[in-house]
Design a binder for these strands. Structure first.
Lengths: 275, 275
DNA sequence: CAAAATACGTAACATACGATACAGCGCTCC
DNA sequence: GGAGCGCTGTATCGTATGTTACGTATTTTG
């Protein structure tokens, strides 16, 4: 079974003429970067002419050069998505149903945070910590509990935190209270809910700053969002996983708390007296 | 010090107009693959026009699109050379707030699952999947969202799943409906809530099977519980983390779903028709 | 050793790609 | 409420890129 272009080349390099073999070796030497550049660059790097490069990729079975490049990119994307860490954690012994789930979840988290800079999180935390306006939280069918979780924590450390629950008509009425000083935190992963999108759009029109928690395919709400957090959700299960987003939420909760502590908010000191 | 394009984007995304921000978010979401494709593909993926993409890369400081792509490729090449250091986000320098939190959370999960056998999870899943009785879920002040999350999923794949919300007096009344064929899933971590403990005790007296999600110091409810899941909750934050319990919950949801599928439950087949 | 077949590069070609000019629109600030 | 500015998309343009045709060089084969 040949699953990568590198293997394909290794398989057929024996049957190639000299110049094409040079091309193959050049590609393998700095795999796969040269293949992503132009034919001209590839050809000069290999010291052959451009038609030779094209004949080379044709021999590998590709219709044209762009198709070859797409294939390389797909391979690269797949490689980047499955972190090397997988090899560090010994594969589960019993082949049970548990480990794959855990492994995938851990990977998702690492990936999610890899795409999330400290600065981004700090910005969002700062926005949530500055108490000029109100904070609203809402989620979709399965993600609303995450909104509740976050709301439950934020409400302890600052005033004017509201979780939008119940029927769509309920929250729509709350739009009246929202303005450009306010923040709306939305959780929305596939399949994206129309009602949430509509709501986000209206809030956006009112100038509300939207912080969106979504999956890597980005809810349409990203269009209106000031900040977007794209979490990985794929796991070997019938359901998508919200675990990565959950951890981001917890991280944000912690950051906001620390921020408010640093600001010396009286409320925090009072709260600590209660702990 | 900015060393990657991803950081550069995170740094400047705040100063960008809306459409360019969409471009930035799209790129970050599937970093860096989209950036290696053509302007046209990038623009349609982001839902903006191609000039916007070009303005976006210009704002990042690149003279033209090819230069931007080369830069991405160089970055990618550097990453591929040292797979171990594949850090998109370098460890935060200034005693960052993110990495320790993530690391601790990941550790918590590993630890939690290390103390959790496949058999234990399988038993619980089997108990939840056998639909002889009803399933009730409830949680504490901060963990109730986890109960909701689990309830939202289980309710899709089987009947008679109830999340107990609202005031204490509300659920107490539901005790009447509970019997020895029923299951009660409780989430309770420090500080353990008296109301929950009382409720668990009464349910236990009625013969209800209790599945307890708690922390490693075990809620007093463990005394009445048929199954206890002890998750690690310590993180470098002012709050405890429920992330490990969340992942266990998701794992269980997946296991129950699989179980029901294996049982050939009609409901599951019908559900899949809707997906 | 001759003749044919294959390999390879040069040069011309067509297309698709990135770049630019411009107009419409919404927003902000007097 | 009006003027100005900035943002964004449409349409157009030049060009770099992949592609192809063809002629020369090299190897292979009878």
């Amino acid at each position: 079974m040949i699953s990568s272009i590198a293997e394909l080349i290794a398989d057929r390099i024996g049957t190639m003429p000299a110049s094409e073999r040079r091309a193959a070796q050049t590609l393998i030497a700095s795999y796969p970067m040269i293949g992503l550049k132009t034919v001209a660059e590839f050809s000069t790097a290999a010291g052959v002419s451009s038609p030779t490069i094209l004949r080379f990729v044709a021999r590998l079975g590709f219709q044209n050069y762009p198709e070859f490049q797409s294939s390389l990119q797909d391979e690269l994307a797949a490689q980047l998505q499955s972190p090397a860490i997988r090899t560090l954690n010994p594969p589960s012994p019993g082949g049970g149903t548990v480990s794959p789930m855990l492994e995938a979840t851990l990977d998702n988290m690492r990936e999610t945070f890899r795409h999330l800079s400290d600065k981004q999180l700090a910005d969002i935390a700062a926005r949530l910590a500055e108490r000029r306006g109100k904070t609203f939280l809402i989620g979709g069918r399965f993600t609303d509990p995450l909104a509740r979780y976050m709301a439950a924590h934020l409400a302890v450390i600052q005033p004017d935190v509201f979780h939008l629950a119940g029927q769509e008509s309920m929250w729509r009425d709350r739009l009246i209270d929202m303005g450009k000083r306010d923040v709306l935190v939305i959780f929305d992963i596939r399949r994206y809910q129309d009602s949430l999108i509509r709501f986000a759009e209206k809030a956006h029109q009112r100038g509300v700053q939207i912080v969106l928690f979504t999956d890597q395919w980005l809810s349409p709400i990203a269009r209106f969002a000031r900040h977007v957090i794209a979490g990985r959700t794929a796991v070997p299960s019938a359901w998508d996983s919200s675990a990565a987003l959950f951890v981001v939420a917890e991280t944000l909760i912690g950051a906001v708390t620390r921020q408010l502590e640093a600001d010396g908010a009286r409320r925090i000191r009072e709260m600590e007296g209660l702990r």
